[in-house]
Amino acid sequence: MKREPFFWVTISCGLVIMAFILLPLIELMTAPSVSMLKETIKDKDVVRSIWLSIYTAGSAALISFVFGTPLAYLLARSEFRGKRLVEGIIDLPIVIPHPVVGIAILSVAGKNHWIGQLFSELGIRIMGSVTGIIIVLTFVGLPFYINAVRGGFESISPRLEKVSRSLGASMFTTFFRITFPLAWRSMLVGIIMCSARAISEFGAVVIVAYHPMIAPVMIYERFEAYGLKYSQPVAVWLVFICLVLFLILRMLTLRKPKEA
């Protein structure tokens, strides 16, 4: 059968996009020599910054898990006035430019705001601290967690919970015996999405905390101070970690969930 011209348009656009994504990444990954990569990972500053990136992104995901799960459940299960508004607010951090996020958080955490004053009285520092970084990363990562988990809850029939209740289980028991075992996969996906988003944040973090240095800030600094060649190996290590996260995500989502 002769293929339509339209078919060739779709194929060639697809190929252009594949090349557009893969070429720079492959170029980046193959640029530094193995010895240079080894040397970089021995650099204590590099290890510290990558570890800090993982640690802060993981903490942001954990906070999203604790506070985001109940909200995701609420959004999946109930209809209420202003629900669209709440959904819009949750998505705000996705659409706001990253440096603006940093500035916005600083304006609440600064000395001119009562929350900032409260924090400084409690001895909590936001500016230039790990706490500050975690707050920023939670801000940008939270929507990804909530949206993923909400979808997971929505795919579980409310009737399962109703049947469980009618058989004598309380709402808490029902959640832990029925809803959670069926939704944990989407929670894991949410945690990975959230931390993947958090680990790549630069613009907001650099405003709140240049030091201690997370990996993206260090890459930027090395690029500014020493040029492309010195920033590449750190970038490769960071990409490698992001890829591992991404691979886990794909593996989890590709496996077919059980059907009722």
């Binding site: 049947v163 004598g168 009722a260």
Partner: peptide, 20 residues
């Protein structure tokens, strides 16, 4: 009374079996 205290069971058209 909350549903778990009523001693009323329900069976749905789509079975609603716990898939796990």
């Amino acid at each position: 009374l909350s549903p778990e205290k009523r001693d009323v069971s329900i069976v749905y058209q789509d079975y609603a079996l716990f898939p796990h």
